[in-house]
Amino acid sequence: MRRQGLLALLLIVFRGFAAEEPQLPCVPRDFGFGSVVCVCNASYCDTLPTPVLPSAGRALVFTSDIEGARFLRTQLSFSDNQNGTGADVARFALESTAFQTVVGWGGAFTDAAAKNILDLSPDAQDRLLSSYFSPSGLEYNIGRVNMGGCDFSWRTYTYADAEGDVELSTFALQPEDTDYKIPVIKRAEALAGRPLKLFASPWTAPKWMKTNNDYVGYGQLRTDMYQPWADYFVRFLDEYAAQGITYWGLTTQNQPYDGYLPDFSFNCMGWTAEEQRKWVAENLGPTLLQHGYEGVKLMILDDQRYQLPEWAESVLNDPVAAQYVDGIAVHWYTDQYVGPERLTQTHDLFPDVFILGTEACEG
């Protein structure tokens, strides 16, 4: 397995430590896509130990870029001279306006990701997971988990596929959970040395709950299934808790617009903002509260930012729905068409509701 660095210049401020581990350098490999990746295998993987806070007046910088730098470490000096020159000078414009704090960084524990990790040799598994989650790696602290099958699954499934089981008596985690995702999540948390902020997202309800009786395509949740679908979320949280895993958050639906597209090809279920508002206010929110999950962060939308701020307004202008909502989840697939001002507009309307980027995929 290979890990590509962030294509960005990162200025990082760290807490101090008494000593700093040596950083193992990237072993580059070029696959002909215009840049390089760092090789990570059973015998070697580059590291990024938690740095020691630099001395006063200096900044520690890590650079990864398309030219091939991978966490290239340099130190810069601060300067209050606007006319100062030189590559070793760092300048900052300090903002007095506070916006939102950074929750963290992470990735997705999908069925496919877990299987590919577990198909590696044990040593390669450990090095790869360490490179993402351990103090000698990226220190990821967030993980997204698909609730049932998704487009990164090798089959279509939910946890209650028995026709008409509104009582969810057949609800059960699947091998994709017990044999793949859960073991990888536990190993990641052990390497991190702390619980991860895990959040779950459903791609579809059981097909018998839907208007089209299918996992895919144009179809929505039947209105008479609003409460069973809310109960399904609680059962998911309960079953994972029984496996020793607790969730920091939930999203209401992965890409709810997909289920309103004709012939959409992978697991989906359509919602309008008004439908989501009603379900959150009358079913999901009260059900989570009733079962002791009021502390779980509930995020709406989980789709593209061009749907903001209208989607947020439709849901959060209802005070009943708003009392259950903590955040707004966004994806990046139309960012080239819609600028970040949509996020600013939404934040200004609802400053107490966080905005979290929950999906960004290239494949």
Rank of each mutant, 00 (worst) to 15 (best):
H347S: 13
T344Y: 14
A322R: 13
D318L: 12
A114Y: 02
T358K: 08
Q243K: 14
L11P: 11
K278G: 07
F350K: 11
Y324H: 12
L237W: 01
P256C: 01
F236Y: 15
E139W: 06
A93N: 13
R58V: 05
G104N: 13
R29V: 14
W271F: 15
D231L: 07
F171G: 11
C45E: 01
D119Y: 00
L308W: 07
F236S: 03
D30A: 07
A188G: 12
M147F: 12
L221Y: 02
K197D: 09
G219N: 10
M147C: 03
L94V: 15
S43I: 13
V320G: 03
L198I: 01
A360D: 14
G32K: 06
I328P: 01
A172W: 00
L94W: 13
A242K: 12
N141C: 08
R127M: 07
G34D: 15
L168H: 08
L7Q: 12
I66N: 06
W271C: 08
F78C: 14
Y240F: 10
S131Q: 06
D335K: 12
A114L: 01
Q253L: 04
Q174C: 00
W154E: 15
L198S: 04
A205T: 13
S121G: 11
P28C: 00
K297H: 03
Y232E: 08
L288F: 00
V216N: 06
C268M: 05
Y226P: 09
G164V: 13
S64F: 08
L237E: 04
V296R: 00
W203M: 08
Q243C: 03
E282T: 10
Y226K: 10
D214A: 13
A19F: 11
V325K: 03
T204Q: 06
C38S: 10
A360C: 12
A312G: 10
A190N: 08
F33H: 05
